[in-house]
Simulated assay, not measured.
Amino acid sequence: MTKFDVLTVGNAIVDIIARCEEDFLVDNTITKGAMNLIDADRSALLYSRMGPAIEMSGGSAGNTAAGVASFGGKAAYFGKVSNDKLGEIFRHDMNAQGVHFATRPLGGTPPTATSMIFVTPDGERSMNTYLGACVELGPEDVQEDVVAQSRVTYFEGYLWDPPRAKEAIRECARIAHAHGQETSMTLSDSFCVDRYRGEFLDLMRSGTVDIVFANRTEALSLYQTSDFDTALTQLAKDCKLAAVTMSEHGSMILFGDQRYLVEPLKVDNVVDTTGAGDLYAAGFLFGYTNGFELADCGRLGSLAAGLVIQQIGPRMQSPLKQAAQQVGIIL
């Protein structure tokens, strides 16, 4: 009997979310739809230029942990914040959502990470992230008992940017596999894939990672092909299990030579795509760690992703467990 369904490991970031027009991105040389890494000065400049904003705890893996908890699952989280106001906000938010989060904070320098997220009228989000305290996450932050008692340990591809985090991830994988548990990763975005393609493929092919999450663009980038079927075929060979999201076309679950096409949740009004992939992973992993069939895991992922894009921000405003019960997925 494990203590946690899912342990997620990621960059602990406080999201600062504001709406903007397309020309704002152009005027401020922001790459649309990507996670742009910035320094403290650039972060301060963008903050001074953004309009009314919402502040909440975020970070890709943090969003996934919160999503698992929202389904009623048992979630834990590793991530580094600083002992400052934003760090307190992050810690409070995670604990309030039922996520076990006990990573020791830094003394105050560098400060807790922030991500300025600009949402354009089409719902697309462009992230500008100052990593701050995130880069200090290292193997000393790995709590062996938590990893050993988590059915799946999941991490974000973004963690491959800060070097010491790689050591932490490899240590998590070693512990998880030694205790008969599984590991999972999300490719995060196509720019991240471009930076670490070889390392990501090695993680998959070596068996360090068992379950992979990607979207269509990331899968194509991973295998440097324009043919989606080719990318899916290769991905199925390179890992035990994969889930590839395809926006309004749903998602594809890959398990050996089996493929499951999962329809998306019907959405009339996309408000903000922030966290869509994170919440898809949350739904899928909640289902997977609780014994659901793979197609139903995909349906839980589609439900969570479809609901989160109809609101501002990546943290659900009402329980996903309740939403699943309403559509008859969880009886």
Rank of each mutant, 00 (worst) to 15 (best):
F78N: 00
D161E: 14
S126I: 08
E140A: 14
V152T: 10
C134I: 02
C134V: 13
L86P: 00
V135Y: 01
V135N: 03
D145I: 04
Y154M: 12
G73Q: 09
P163A: 12
Y158A: 05
R91W: 00
Q143W: 02
A102R: 13
E156T: 14
F78K: 01
T153F: 08
F71I: 07
C134P: 04
V68A: 05
K166G: 12
S70T: 07
A133W: 01
V68K: 00
D141Y: 11
T103G: 12
A96M: 14
G73W: 06
P121N: 10
M94Q: 02
L159W: 10
T103W: 10
S115F: 09
R104G: 01
G157L: 06
A69V: 00
L131V: 04
V152A: 06
H92R: 15
N95L: 15
S126Y: 09
G123R: 09
P139G: 04
S126K: 02
E124F: 03
G157E: 06
G123S: 07
R125E: 07
G98V: 08
S70H: 03
D122Y: 10
G108I: 08
R104V: 13
E144N: 04
E156A: 08
A148L: 08
A76M: 03
V119R: 08
D84G: 08
M116S: 05
T112C: 01
F71C: 05
A148Y: 03
S150G: 06
G157W: 05
F90K: 03
T129I: 03
I117D: 05
D161S: 13
A165L: 13
T129C: 11
D161A: 05
L131H: 07
G72N: 11
G73M: 05
R164T: 15
V146F: 01
S70A: 11
D141T: 07
P163L: 08
V68H: 04
T112D: 04
P162L: 06
R151K: 15
G157K: 08
H100I: 10
P121G: 11
W160C: 03
S70K: 12
E88R: 15
L131F: 10
T112Q: 04
F155R: 06
G138S: 15
Y158L: 02
T153I: 11
S115N: 14
A76P: 00
N95T: 14
P139V: 12
T153K: 04
R104N: 13
F155S: 06
G157F: 04
P111Q: 15
G79Q: 03
E144L: 10
V142F: 07
V142M: 02
N128T: 05
G98L: 10
P105W: 12
A96T: 14
G107K: 15
R125C: 03
P162E: 09
P139D: 10
G79R: 04
P121D: 14
P162Q: 08
G157R: 07
F71P: 01
I117N: 02
R91L: 07
P110G: 12
E136T: 09
T153E: 03
E136D: 13
R151W: 12
T112L: 00
L131N: 00
G87N: 06
N95W: 02
V99E: 03
S150Y: 00
S126P: 05
